[in-house]
């Protein structure tokens, strides 16, 4: 177990390092010179060189990276937003919890709705209920999440006027975005739950449980559902990048002041420092959540930690 944690942690740290190098390199892949963009074209060459020295752009690349990374690690200093001239950290600070709350709620409802449905579908495979659920979820996979959001706005916000369609002032404001998020992800959660549970049902220990005379309900609750806890954790870790992707678009549509809205607006405004910081922070959050889930899975399911000891994934 301990060596498993160390192994995953090292892999995670290395991923974080690589992402940070990539994000840092983005600055140099940008067309145009950052100093030119910051100061405009009219400024004299000497002044520009002075600024270049001031920002450390005249140093070798690896030293620049170390300076950049050290600032972020030490004081969360991501530099200044080119448009608003405010520290990027101040822009992001209030937005991270909002995105986490929004994504967390979506994930919670997704699991609460889709996992029981998936369980029932697996247990009553090929029943009319299973067919109906599979049909509906197949249909929903064809609907892009952003259009689901638009339809919800038209229906509940415009036609029936029962829910607010834009903003983040009251808890009611979160109803439509979370609904859109769940509608966008529940189909794949149902499908994954179903196929995992079908695998569990086939396991020998389930057969053993039946053989020793346990009833259907007892087997389902004691043996199958127990393993479903592991399954839910796996699902959480698999769906996080997908949920965050959805959150970016949904925040933009519903005007939720989270990271997603910030990153889209910053790209449109070409506020590069903010984009860079958002990409880094979101990737870091994703990697850390995945690590956390991996640890949980390792604790819950001894088979996985043994299987992963070889490092194969």
């Amino acid at each position: 177990m301990f060596s498993y944690i160390i192994k995953r942690l090292t892999q995670g740290l290395f991923l974080v390092f690589s992402v940070s190098v990539l994000v840092f390199a983005m600055l140099y892949m940008m067309p145009g010179d950052p100093i030119d963009q910051m100061m405009g074209w009219k400024v004299s060459q000497e002044k520009k060189d002075e600024m270049r020295h001031f920002y450390g752009f005249d140093l070798p690349m690896h030293e620049q990276y170390i300076n950049w990374a050290a600032k972020i690690v030490k004081s969360g200093d991501f530099g200044l937003s080119i448009r608003t001239k405010l520290p990027v950290l101040d822009l992001m600070k209030a937005r991270i919890p909002i995105t986490l709350k929004f994504t967390g709620l979506t994930l919670l409802f997704d699991i609460l709705i889709a996992v029981p449905l998936g369980l029932v579908c697996a247990y009553k495979k090929d029943s009319p209920f299973d067919r109906a659920v599979v049909g509906v979820s197949l249909f929903f996979t064809a609907i892009p999440q952003f259009w689901t959001a638009v339809l919800l706005i038209l229906l509940f916000g415009v036609t029936w006027k029962i829910l607010p369609l834009h903003g983040y002032e009251t808890p009611l404001h979160l109803v439509l975005p979370v609904a859109a998020g769940v509608l966008g992800s529940f189909a794949s959660t149902i499908r994954m739950t179903k196929s995992e549970v079908l695998d569990v049902i086939k396991e020998k220990y389930v057969l053993t449980a039946y053989a020793k005379g346990l009833g259907k309900t007892a087997v389902l609750i004691k043996h199958v559902l127990r393993n479903a806890l592991i399954l839910v954790t796996v699902l959480v870790s698999l769906s996080i990048p997908w949920l965050i992707s959805g959150a970016v678009i949904l925040e933009h549509i519903f005007g939720i002041p989270g990271m997603g809205g910030l990153i889209v607006n910053s790209i449109i405004m070409q506020d590069f420092a903010v984009v860079q910081a958002c990409v880094l922070v979101i990737s870091l959050l994703t990697v850390s959540f995945n690590l956390l889930c991996d640890f949980l899975i390792g604790i819950l399911d001894p088979r996985i930690s043994i299987a992963l000891k070889g490092g194969e994934r």
Binding site: L15, P241, S245, V279, T286, N290
Partner: peptide, 20 residues
């Protein structure tokens, strides 16, 4: 793996930022 662990839309947004 790296392209897999960064949320898809974030990577796409980063590329669009670079390319326009």
């Amino acid at each position: 793996d790296l392209a897999w662990c960064i949320p898809g839309i974030i990577l796409a947004l980063a590329v669009v930022t670079l390319l326009g």
